[in-house]
Design a protein around this nucleic acid. Sequence first.
DNA 1: ATAATTAACTTGTATATACAAGCGGTGGCT
DNA 2: AGCCACCGCTTGTATATACAAGTTAATTAT
Lengths: 233, 233
Amino acid sequence: MTVPKFVAIKQHIINQIESGQWPENARVPSENLLAEQFSVSRMTARRALQELTDENILFRTKGSGTFVASFKSQSSLLEIKNIADEISARGHRYSARQVTLQAQDLPKALLPLFGMNVGTQIFYSEIIHLENDQPIQLEQRYINASLVPDYLQQNFSQITPHEYLSNVAPLTEATHEIEAVIASTQINQLLAISSQQPCLQVKRRTWSSQGVVSFAILTSPGDKYRLGGHLTF
Amino acid sequence: MTVPKFVAIKQHIINQIESGQWPENARVPSENLLAEQFSVSRMTARRALQELTDENILFRTKGSGTFVASFKSQSSLLEIKNIADEISARGHRYSARQVTLQAQDLPKALLPLFGMNVGTQIFYSEIIHLENDQPIQLEQRYINASLVPDYLQQNFSQITPHEYLSNVAPLTEATHEIEAVIASTQINQLLAISSQQPCLQVKRRTWSSQGVVSFAILTSPGDKYRLGGHLTF
DNA sequence: ATAATTAACTTGTATATACAAGCGGTGGCT
DNA sequence: AGCCACCGCTTGTATATACAAGTTAATTAT
């Protein structure tokens, strides 16, 4: 056997999608149907579907079926995941500690990022994300108050800022800057790490259809944060 | 059953690793041993090991065993994958078309990126990466000639610039800027896409211990490039 | 007509089994 | 000592089966 059977089935499915035969959200043959068509057991057909699902090419709903994932959610920009979901998926306990939540003036240094005038109302939040009570990420976020007026009323121990913003102002675009840095003393204390510990720092600007929604600086200790294959914000 | 058995096994393994019991490259119990310890079938134990391998927490060698993956390869910055490997892994055919390969002056606009003086010798390469003969990414790269003097002599249909640079000047750091753009007419022609097609553009600067090695602009059509969960450069 | 029940189909978890294929050491032969 | 065959252990692929649990649509009862 040159290629394993489950690989052949995967390639067949990918071909159907790439040739346009199976458009977005189209239903993919069920495990049993594929098993019959390819004369394999259900578990082998299942493996093909499962791996393609892991690769975000398909999505599955229990009891309902398997479907072609929408292309948009995969490419274009980056899949922006919710850190709380990610931690839960690891079987760990997520919690958050709110450090700051206030209205303030937009720092001059950030003016060009927002493309707004001096004096524009801005909200600022500072939250520490914890995994099993260990600080894993510091989130510093500047929010365009005119687009998200109710931001200060939220309880960010129940919902992450990213999740909240995604609901009230669906993002249409985002830019990222990613680098490794030695963080400031303040940040080191907040994250409970030593002064020489390198951190992964992601700066993200998000837009909705109305304009720049927020600018976030996400700082994670390099030794505690498994970045693996993807970015988790 | 509150959590599935394979999840419980995964958590147990993660705990051992995070508590330091199982250091990097330590051998993980075999499928049969885990099956016995947890009173499950080998296939269930296998699933736990396999999923952790997919998450880059373990690695497996046929005939040899399962081991704890080294932490470094996962965190720190970003896993920078080789686009050629990635395309091969999809079962597709990788090829490259070299557009330009020359010595030239460093464009003034890029001077601050390299932190070098005017007149420094620079190499420039422009390569199109193809998947099944379809253009999938344009790579424009400026190379610090003093650190990589033999760059122009390479044959980039056999080895990607990233692969070559990784060999001769192992990178210690990298920064990324990621955004969605409408590319120039020239780039659209090279990638054989329409003028309104949005592209994913990644700008990457890499450092070795000697200093800035190269600056690359990687442009990929948003509809042809599955970014999925990770960045592939 | 509407609501509740049921039946058929789907994915998810789990087991037991079989054979293939690669690695490593042990032991015997030259 | 060096070479080679072998054996045990490992991971990889594949099958057949069972039951759980969620969705959907048809059927039935109200």
